[in-house]
Simulated assay, not measured.
Amino acid sequence: MNKNLLLAAVSLVALSAAAPALAADLAARPYTKAPAMVAAIYDWSGFYIGINGGGASARSTWDAVGFGREGSHDATGGTVGGQIGYRWQSGQWVFGVEGQGNWADFSGDNLSSLFATRNRSKIDSFGLITGQVGYAWNNVLVYAKGGAAVVGAKYEVFDAASGALLGSNDQTRWGGTIGAGLEYGFAPNWSLGIEYNHIFLQDKDVTFALVPSTDRIRQDVDMGLVRLNYKFGAGQMLGRY
């Protein structure tokens, strides 16, 4: 047998014998769990400040004390203002407190059914102090609110024929409010919403320098607003596994 062929045969036998040992020495690859999917959730907690604007209708009913019903009218117009508040979130439930102040121009009038006069009502400002409770679906929040309301109002009586002002009275009136809103978080610190509020005002005896001199005025307000809020602090979008 050729010497070179003999050496090749010996090497092949040695390599075949060593192959199982080499395979056994290779460590099995460790199993690594794939990273879990991370879903972004919106955190409604924290202080916020914002602006609002919209329109309203204030229903006013005038009763001349000792004489009877003079009539009713709707005082309508626009409003713009701001709000500041704080919210805290527990699971999907969101709780909050808020203060709101607005300039307004709600005005209307009607002819008296008893006298030759025209009665005019105007609301030029209002404030709301409310508590909130809401439920969040990630960056969508639905909430109800309620609390106290204060309104700056003006009442005027004009001569029906000439239009001359016969008497006026400025009043600060207190009452309550309830409402509901829908808010959408479109960026980590910004949210846009719509809101409805109803303001209940107590009946008020308003005195004029006229005869008859006193009207009992009943008023309430229905209002729709668009709101833009900025929440302070970073990290409003959180991660969740």
Score class of each variant (00 low, 15 high):
96 G>Y: 02
96 G>V: 01
98 E>W: 01
98 E>Y: 04
99 G>E: 02
100 Q>L: 13
100 Q>S: 08
100 Q>T: 04
100 Q>G: 00
101 G>P: 06
101 G>S: 08
103 W>N: 10
104 A>C: 11
104 A>K: 00
105 D>P: 04
105 D>M: 09
106 F>W: 07
106 F>D: 01
106 F>K: 02
107 S>E: 12
108 G>D: 04
109 D>E: 15
109 D>S: 15
109 D>L: 10
110 N>L: 01
111 L>M: 08
113 S>D: 14
114 L>V: 05
114 L>G: 03
115 F>D: 07
115 F>L: 13
115 F>T: 14
116 A>Q: 02
117 T>F: 06
119 N>R: 14
119 N>M: 09
119 N>W: 03
121 S>E: 05
122 K>N: 12
122 K>M: 11
123 I>W: 00
125 S>Q: 11
125 S>K: 06
125 S>F: 12
126 F>I: 05
127 G>C: 04
128 L>Y: 02
129 I>N: 04
133 V>Q: 10
133 V>N: 07
134 G>Q: 02
135 Y>S: 00
135 Y>D: 04
135 Y>H: 12
136 A>K: 00
137 W>V: 13
137 W>A: 10
137 W>T: 07
138 N>I: 04
140 V>R: 00
140 V>M: 10
140 V>N: 03
141 L>W: 02
142 V>D: 04
142 V>P: 00
142 V>K: 01
143 Y>M: 05
144 A>F: 12
145 K>W: 01
146 G>A: 14
146 G>I: 00
146 G>Q: 04
147 G>T: 05
147 G>K: 03
147 G>M: 08
148 A>G: 15
148 A>K: 15
150 V>K: 04
151 V>K: 01
151 V>R: 01
152 G>M: 10
153 A>P: 03
153 A>G: 10
154 K>Q: 14
154 K>W: 07
156 E>D: 12
156 E>V: 12
156 E>T: 12
157 V>Q: 11
159 D>V: 13
161 A>C: 10
161 A>W: 10
161 A>D: 13
163 G>V: 06
163 G>D: 05
163 G>W: 10
163 G>N: 06
165 L>V: 05
166 L>P: 02
166 L>V: 03
167 G>I: 01
167 G>N: 12
168 S>L: 06
169 N>W: 03
170 D>T: 09
170 D>M: 08
170 D>F: 05
171 Q>V: 08
172 T>P: 03
173 R>F: 05
174 W>H: 14
174 W>T: 14
174 W>P: 03
175 G>A: 10
175 G>D: 09
175 G>Y: 09
175 G>V: 06
